[in-house]
Protein backbone atom coordinates (compact mmCIF):
# COMPACT_ATOMS: atom_id res chain seq x y z
CA UNK A 1 0.00 0.00 0.00
CA UNK A 2 1.39 3.44 -0.85
CA UNK A 3 0.85 6.28 1.58
CA UNK A 4 -0.69 9.43 0.15
CA UNK A 5 2.02 12.05 0.09
CA UNK A 6 2.74 14.08 2.10
CA UNK A 7 1.58 11.80 4.89
CA UNK A 8 3.15 13.61 7.85
CA UNK A 9 2.21 16.98 9.34
CA UNK A 10 3.83 20.03 7.69
CA UNK A 11 7.36 20.64 8.91
CA UNK A 12 8.29 16.95 9.14
CA UNK A 13 8.91 16.38 5.42
CA UNK A 14 12.40 14.96 5.95
CA UNK A 15 10.90 12.01 7.82
CA UNK A 16 8.60 11.13 4.93
CA UNK A 17 11.01 8.54 3.52
CA UNK A 18 10.72 6.46 6.72
CA UNK A 19 6.93 6.24 6.75
CA UNK A 20 6.48 3.17 4.53
CA UNK A 21 8.82 0.96 6.56
CA UNK A 22 8.51 2.28 10.11
CA UNK A 23 4.89 3.35 10.55
CA UNK A 24 3.32 0.21 11.95
CA UNK A 25 0.33 -0.61 14.11
CA UNK A 26 1.71 -2.75 16.90
CA UNK A 27 4.63 -3.08 19.23
CA UNK A 28 5.45 -6.51 17.85
CA UNK A 29 5.44 -5.30 14.23
CA UNK A 30 7.82 -2.46 15.08
CA UNK A 31 10.09 -4.90 16.85
CA UNK A 32 10.07 -7.26 13.88
CA UNK A 33 10.79 -4.37 11.49
CA UNK A 34 13.86 -3.40 13.47
CA UNK A 35 15.02 -6.96 14.02
CA UNK A 36 15.02 -7.72 10.29
CA UNK A 37 16.36 -4.37 9.02
CA UNK A 38 19.94 -3.64 7.98
CA UNK A 39 21.94 -1.75 10.59
CA UNK A 40 22.65 1.11 8.16
CA UNK A 41 18.95 1.64 7.58
CA UNK A 42 18.21 1.53 11.30
CA UNK A 43 20.96 4.08 11.93
CA UNK A 44 19.64 6.41 9.19
CA UNK A 45 16.15 6.29 10.67
CA UNK A 46 17.49 6.73 14.19
CA UNK A 47 19.55 9.80 13.27
CA UNK A 48 16.66 11.42 11.44
CA UNK A 49 13.98 10.80 14.08
CA UNK A 50 16.16 11.61 17.08
CA UNK A 51 17.01 15.00 15.51
CA UNK A 52 13.29 15.83 15.35
CA UNK A 53 12.02 13.91 18.38
CA UNK A 54 11.40 16.86 20.70
CA UNK A 55 9.43 18.78 18.06
CA UNK A 56 7.51 15.67 17.08
CA UNK A 57 6.57 15.02 20.72
CA UNK A 58 5.43 18.62 21.16
CA UNK A 59 3.38 18.30 17.98
CA UNK A 60 1.69 15.12 19.16
CA UNK A 61 1.00 16.56 22.59
CA UNK A 62 -1.60 18.84 21.02
CA UNK A 63 -3.88 15.84 20.69
CA UNK A 64 -5.48 13.31 22.98
CA UNK A 65 -3.95 9.87 22.97
CA UNK A 66 -5.75 7.59 20.56
CA UNK A 67 -7.49 10.57 18.90
CA UNK A 68 -4.90 12.05 16.59
CA UNK A 69 -5.52 13.09 13.00
CA UNK A 70 -3.97 10.51 10.63
CA UNK A 71 -0.87 12.55 9.75
CA UNK A 72 -0.04 13.19 13.40
CA UNK A 73 -0.73 9.58 14.28
CA UNK A 74 1.81 8.50 11.66
CA UNK A 75 4.33 10.84 13.21
CA UNK A 76 3.56 9.37 16.63
CA UNK A 77 4.09 5.86 15.28
CA UNK A 78 7.48 6.95 13.99
CA UNK A 79 8.28 8.08 17.53
CA UNK A 80 7.19 4.70 18.84
CA UNK A 81 9.45 3.00 16.28
CA UNK A 82 12.30 5.25 17.43
CA UNK A 83 12.43 3.22 20.66
CA UNK A 84 13.03 0.06 18.70
CA UNK A 85 15.74 1.66 16.60
CA UNK A 86 17.31 2.73 19.90
CA UNK A 87 17.56 -0.87 21.07
CA UNK A 88 19.69 -1.61 18.01
CA UNK A 89 21.74 1.59 18.05
CA UNK A 90 22.13 2.26 21.78
CA UNK A 91 22.26 -1.26 23.17
CA UNK A 92 23.51 -3.83 20.69
CA UNK A 93 25.18 -1.93 17.86
CA UNK A 94 23.35 -4.54 15.81
CA UNK A 95 19.72 -5.01 14.74
CA UNK A 96 19.02 -7.42 17.60
CA UNK A 97 20.62 -9.26 20.49
CA UNK A 98 23.90 -10.94 19.62
CA UNK A 99 23.64 -14.57 18.59
CA UNK A 100 19.86 -14.50 18.81
CA UNK A 101 17.87 -16.49 16.30
CA UNK A 102 15.35 -15.06 13.85
CA UNK A 103 12.55 -15.73 13.11
CA UNK A 104 12.15 -15.70 16.82
CA UNK A 105 9.93 -17.69 19.14
CA UNK A 106 9.27 -14.49 21.09
CA UNK A 107 6.19 -12.36 20.44
CA UNK A 108 4.87 -9.24 22.13
CA UNK A 109 1.29 -10.44 22.14
CA UNK A 110 -0.06 -7.38 23.92
CA UNK A 111 1.54 -3.96 23.85
CA UNK A 112 0.72 -0.75 25.74
CA UNK A 113 -2.26 1.32 24.60
CA UNK A 114 -2.55 2.92 22.08
CA UNK A 115 -0.94 1.24 19.05
CA UNK A 116 0.44 -1.59 21.16
CA UNK A 117 -1.53 -4.27 19.40
CA UNK A 118 -2.95 -7.59 20.54
CA UNK A 119 -2.29 -10.98 19.05
Amino acid sequence: MTVASPSLPPGFEELEAFVPYWVLDSNDQRRAARSTAEMDDIQRFYDAIVARAEQAIVHCEQFKLGQMPPASERLFKLLLAMNHAAIAVEMHGAPRAHESTWPSAVRITQGPWPHGGRI
Binding site: N27, L65, L79, M91, A105, P112
Partner: peptide, 23 residues
Protein backbone atom coordinates in the same frame (compact mmCIF):
# COMPACT_ATOMS: atom_id res chain seq x y z
CA UNK B 1 2.64 10.98 24.88
CA UNK B 2 5.94 10.83 26.72
CA UNK B 3 4.70 8.14 29.05
CA UNK B 4 3.56 6.09 26.07
CA UNK B 5 7.04 6.37 24.55
CA UNK B 6 8.57 5.18 27.80
CA UNK B 7 6.21 2.20 27.87
CA UNK B 8 7.23 1.31 24.32
CA UNK B 9 10.88 1.42 25.32
CA UNK B 10 10.11 -0.66 28.39
CA UNK B 11 8.24 -3.29 26.33
CA UNK B 12 10.93 -3.57 23.70
CA UNK B 13 13.74 -3.76 26.24
CA UNK B 14 11.85 -6.60 27.91
CA UNK B 15 11.27 -8.39 24.60
CA UNK B 16 14.98 -8.16 23.90
CA UNK B 17 15.83 -9.65 27.31
CA UNK B 18 13.36 -12.44 26.62
CA UNK B 19 14.93 -13.05 23.22
CA UNK B 20 18.36 -13.35 24.80
CA UNK B 21 17.09 -15.85 27.37
CA UNK B 22 14.99 -17.94 24.98
CA UNK B 23 17.75 -18.24 22.41
Amino acid sequence: IRHRLQLEHYACRWAEVVLEDVT
